[in-house]
């Protein structure tokens, strides 16, 4: 239960960091909050040759408004977002999700970029990033690019990033007028990995029909699962209870592929997806209605 030996680097600037990541390639791991990486190292499931510690790079810690909405530096602690009045206003879905991520003692260390880049299918942040159409700013020594969250996730614990690349910033678009959001998950104990969870965003037209919807699940596939058919069914419809339930039903029966484990089999996870899907769509719609009145 002790990590294998590794070279340790604690760069102070992003430039230095990218140089190190380029030099090591696949043999180095960036160390963000360490709340997922260090456990796997303690069990020796991961034995990187080198760790590049990002905790001393001041320029990666920030929460600010920018042209793409709420911008968070990759090293922004989850706890900092939870405590941020700006985040609550500018990215309320992100803010509402924070307390569901593990425990306060983990969020004190865990980072926005670390969780997004780790791409755990049971993690909350990837689902929220996809639901919000967030974009990821990825850099290497030679390249810098913005990637839509949807293209960032390519499989189980897999992202579109190449060795040598680092997720340095994430931007969450501001809520649109007449839109609402919701997040919910079911875990055996508060803070445990959820057996199923979902994030929803609903945008209404001036006449009160659904103009745009997003429903994204976690823990029921290889990554965040966007229920696009369910969302398409909703567009143009009046958001009645029957319509929302039918969309959740569609998502739960046709769009997810849950794998069972000791805590929850596939059938139970499907059941949860149906129930949680309906709840988040309902709450998001109620909030969109409130926003439309303002």
């Amino acid at each position: 239960m002790k990590p294998a030996a590794f070279d340790y680097h604690a760069p102070r600037t992003l430039e230095e960091t990218l140089d190190l990541l380029a030099a090591y390639g696949e043999d180095a791991k960036p160390l963000a909050g360490g709340q997922s990486l260090v456990p796997t190292m303690n069990f020796r499931l991961a034995q990187p040759q080198a760790l590049v510690d990002l905790n001393g790079i001041d320029e990666l810690f920030f929460i600010r408004e920018g042209e793409r909405g709420l911008h968070c530096g990759g090293m922004t602690r989850q706890r900092a977002v939870e405590r941020s009045g700006l985040a609550r206003k500018a990215a309320p879905l992100l803010h509402e999700t924070m307390p569901h991520i593990a425990h306060a003692q983990i969020r004190n260390r865990g980072t926005i970029g670390g969780s997004l880049a780790h791409a755990d299918p049971a993690a909350e942040l990837p689902a929220v990033a996809v639901a919000l159409d967030a974009s990821m700013y990825v850099r290497s020594v030679t390249d810098a690019r913005w990637l839509p969250a949807r293209d960032f996730y390519v499989g189980l614990f897999a992202t579109a990033m190449e060795p040598g690349e680092l997720l340095v910033e994430v931007a969450f678009p501001r809520p649109r007028p007449r839109s609402g959001w919701a997040f919910e998950e079911v875990a055996r104990q508060h803070g445990n990995y959820a057996m199923c969870g979902a994030a929803a965003v609903v945008e209404l037209s001036e006449k009160g029909a659904i103009e745009k919807a997003r429903l994204v699940f976690l823990s029921v596939g290889e990554g965040p699962v966007a229920a696009d058919q369910a969302a398409a069914m909703l567009v143009g419809e009046r958001p009645t209870a029957t319509v929302l339930r039918a969309a959740a039903e569609e998502a739960a029966t046709k769009e997810i592929d849950p794998v069972g484990d000791i805590h929850a089999g596939p059938a139970y996870r499907r059941h949860l997806a149906r129930v949680i899907g309906e709840r988040v769509l309902t709450r998001a719609t109620a909030r969109a209605n409130e926003a439309a009145l303002m």
Partner: peptide, 25 residues
């Protein structure tokens, strides 16, 4: 030793953290 049980919780600059998920360096 993987951040779940909380027995090793200490304060780092006055915030509670898992000491099994931090390297002394």
């Amino acid at each position: 030793e993987h951040g779940v049980c909380g027995a090793c919780t200490v304060l780092l600059d006055r915030e509670a953290v898992r000491s099994c998920l931090l390297f002394a360096v």
